[in-house]
Design a protein around this nucleic acid. Structure first.
Length: 547
RNA sequence: GCGCUCGUAGCUCAGCGGAUAGAGCAGCUGCCUUCUAAGCAGUUGGUCGCAGGUUCGAAUCCUGCCGAGCGCGCCA
């Protein structure tokens, strides 16, 4: 029995009690969950449903609990139900019922952990969006790892997700980039407000080689094109493909800023003052109004943001998510107000996720190692230092609210304190067990011959429970937009497997004949392999067959 | 000044209102003639920043204070 099925049984028991006692069924929740008590004396699973219902129907929680326990105790697969404390239900499952989970997991395979709770939702997820004036730095790498994991999580929950990278290829910073390239190509020092770094020289030389009489316009177009190609490649090498690289210049060339302005004007939130055109974002809680078109006739960056917002919405996305660094949190107010100015409800259509910054550290000192950019650490530097798997895992394992230092030595170590290896080692071990089993002629056999009641060892039961937790973890991680929950879970699951492996011999020893217990444990081994692989996949980390 | 985030073991961090707050590291001690020791077992370590409030129940929610980081342009 899975925890989800057990939770349904708990609810069914409550429903039965309500009907028996003539209580109002409207007080019952649409769904409920069971939790895993930390203390094993409190059973395999616990429900707090009696505590929650008691105040709604003005009953004694322990009395309600007793009634629910009565019905629940008759559910097949449930071994016992006890009432504890103020009204907890402490539930134990039959060994066989718990063991069946291994079969469910193996048979569900790659789909295990997926759900349809976000089915039908069209979500646009924008992240990284670093300017195409230089390589993606380590901060961008964090959003790449997090955003990609989030996209996978949302898709695993059934959502229709489009990932997007906004390319700021218009405006003053691109002019500076173009002038820097032109200067570098001519052997002159880059302008005061320009871009430095060896990569500028390299790109400039390459452009000059292909276009000997290149002017600023060519340096601009070619420079952006080449830089963007590099960015796309770095991200692809990092395992982060975007569905769309959206260019700001397209908004301009298609007249979408004018369209957006007209739309905002229709909604009555635009006014002219001091020669500029303003959006009255203070109508919706922003701390000041924002300029759309400057008095010199130029559009502001914010005007392009408005057009981009409208473009996404008109492409059919009902929810726009954006990952931004903490240094951009000041955007939230104006973005939400802007959405409201379009007539949307920002709390429904816009979701801005803010993440803290990240450093690469060696020997306790922040690293500045880029040969190319001079001062910043690029995504390539990160991959070169610790590899893609360690990098993706390191960036995804912490809450995005927490600033992180990635210690090069830790993340390249092959020991217990390097979490990525600890987890990947389970993938390798389970795969190794599978190979060795095949060699001695041990297979899982037919599903009907699986004997789940043999998995009664404490470590087997612990592992089964950990495997059962996975779908709820994925659902919570998706709902809370917190991929790190998956990583933390995998570390716990890895611990459960290692302890199982250490205590429960899977393969026959010597010339011992193959028996049902060997086969049952192989089911458990393979179920673990499935969940580890599924979980690592959500994080974009490989599940190696050998290490 | 205003806003956002954070404050949990010596260190790095988990903990979407539930029972005795967890993990790894660091420290100390054990386990490889059997499936990968990149592993396992044991042991030490806490006023959950402070003070109130809500609740049957608060590390978790609310308010205030203290401390740290970041942000508050007709910049991009």
């Amino acid at each position: 029995m899975t925890p989800a099925k057990l939770a349904e049984a708990v609810l069914a028991a409550a429903r039965a009690l309500f009907s028996e006692r003539g209580l109002d069924p409207a007080a019952l929740p649409a769904s409920t969950t069971v939790e895993r008590p930390r203390n094993p004396e409190h059973g395999d699973y616990a429900s707090t449903i009696a505590l929650q219902l008691a105040k709604k129907v003005r009953a004694q929680p322990r009395d309600l609990a007793a009634g629910i326990a009565d019905h629940l105790g008759r559910t097949p697969g449930v071994k016992s139900v006890e009432i504890a404390g103020p009204g907890f239900l402490n539930i134990r499952l039959d060994t066989a019922s718990a063991g069946q989970l291994a079969r469910v997991v193996v048979q569900t395979g790659r789909e295990y952990g997926h759900s349809d709770r976000l089915a039908g939702q069209r979500i646009n997820l924008e992240f990284v969006s670093a300017n195409p004036t230089g390589p993606v730095h380590i901060g961008g790498a964090r959003w790449a790892a997090l955003g990609d994991a989030l996209a996978r999580l949302l898709r695993a929950s059934g959502a229709d997700v489009g990932t997007e990278y906004y390319v700021n290829d218009a405006g003053a910073q691109i002019d500076r980039f173009a002038r820097s390239l032109e200067a570098a190509a001519g052997g002159r020092p880059v302008p005061e407000d320009g871009y430095a770094g060896e990569y500028i020289k390299q790109i400039a030389d390459a452009i000059k080689k292909d276009h000997p009489d290149a002017g600023e316009a060519t340096f601009r177009d070619e420079g952006v094109a080449r830089m963007l190609r590099e960015i796309r490649t770095s991200l692809a090498d990092f395992g982060v493909p975007f569905d769309l690289f959206f260019r700001e210049s397209d908004l301009h060339s298609r007249g979408e800023l004018e369209t957006a302005l007209a739309r905002l004007r229709e909604q009555g939130h635009v006014y002219d003052a001091a020669g500029a055109i303003w959006l009255r974002t203070t109508d919706f809680g922003d701390d000041k109004d924002r300029v759309l078109r400057k008095s010199d006739g130029e559009w502001t960056y914010f005007a392009a943001d408005c057009a981009y917002y409208l473009d996404k919405r008109e492409r059919g996305f009902e929810r726009l998510m954006m990952l931004l660094g903490a240094d951009h949190h000041g955007y939230i107010g104006r973005m939400r107000a802007m959405a409201a100015c379009f007539g949307d409800q920002p709390e429904r259509t816009l979701e801005i996720l803010i993440g803290q910054l990240v450093n690469l550290v060696k020997d306790g000192e922040p690293l500045r190692m880029s040969k190319r950019a001079g001062t910043v650490v690029t995504i390539e530097d990160l991959v070169e230092s610790i590899g893609v798997d360690a990098a993706r895992y390191a960036l995804a394992r912490f809450s995005s609210d927490s600033p992180i230092d990635i210690d090069v030595d830790l993340w390249t170590r092959s020991t217990r304190d390097n979490p990525v290896y600890y987890v990947q080692y389970v993938a390798a071990r389970t795969a190794s067990v599978s190979r060795n089993a095949a060699e001695v002629g041990l297979t899982r056999g037919e599903a009907d011959d699986f004997r789940p009641e043999l998995l009664g060892h404490e470590k087997e039961q612990d592992l089964l429970k950990a495997l059962g937790d996975y779908p709820a973890i994925v659902a919570a991680a998706a709902e809370l937009r917190e991929p790190h929950r998956v990583a933390r879970y995998l570390e716990e699951l890895a611990g459960s497997y290692h302890r199982f492996y250490d205590n429960c011999r899977i393969l026959p020893v010597g010339d011992e004949p193959i028996g049902d217990l060997h086969r049952a444990r192989l089911w458990l081994n393979d179920a673990t392999r499935t969940v580890i692989a599924n979980g690592l996949d959500l994080l974009g980390v490989s599940a190696p067959e050998r290490m």
